[in-house]
Amino acid sequence: MFSERERERYKRQMMLFGDEGQERLKKAHIFIAGAGGLGSPVSIYLAVAGIGTLTVVDRDVVDQSNLNRQILHYDRDIGRKKTESAEEKLCAINPDIRIRVIDTTIEEKNAGDLVGKADGIVDAMDNYPTRYLLNDVSLRKKIPLFHGAICGFYGQATTIIPGQTACLACIFPKAPPKEVFPVVGVTPGLIGMVQATEVLKYLLKRGELLTNRLFIWDGIQAHADEICIERNPRCTACGSFCETPGDI
């Protein structure tokens, strides 16, 4: 059931997917790993769309150098916990949803508990070791993983449905070297929108998901590419978790 305020707030999108669709969003719980360049636009747009519960995890404090892209955080937030800053903004953006923030580092020992019974995991991390942890949790708990990553004007995104699609380790078996990556805010903005759109479509059961496809964006050329991907029969991550490893 929706309050009058909610009906008014979501009126224009309920023209698209009705009470039933909006109810699906309201009942959903999405876990967002990171409140940085990708986590900011993803969480803002999922909040305004009316996802019932958003959990946002981050371990950092806001730094001045974050502000060219991490649009959840303002100049006045410098030195403040990103989770605190994110909670304040997201609650103000939509007081009709539940925002949970957790100020911690995602590690092997806590990743499963942090994700809990979420309906989807958004990968808004900036490193592959943590992404592989999220991938493992996604496979173990059979929770979809919405991957995104960026560098400079380039970005990539894909949607992983455990047991059905290639997993993150099938696509990227080895992590690229860690580096301080250049970035301009529009790139995580764009890739974050791809991820958030995927989350909505998954919850609404609408359209074609970005499964077994890697979306590649080149902002310099204003060109989007798509590469078909498939499960890797030799994948060390999904071979032991998937129920049907033989159906490759």
Binding site: G34, G36, G37, L38, G39, D123, A124, M125, D126, N127, Y128, G148, A149, I150, C151, Y154, G155, Q156, I171, F172, A175, P176, K178, E179, F181, V183, P188, I216, I227
Partner: peptide, 10 residues
């Protein structure tokens, strides 16, 4: 033939 490096940032 396509050749690419995964990007890592977020």
């Amino acid at each position: 033939v396509a050749v690419f490096p995964p990007v890592a940032g977020g």
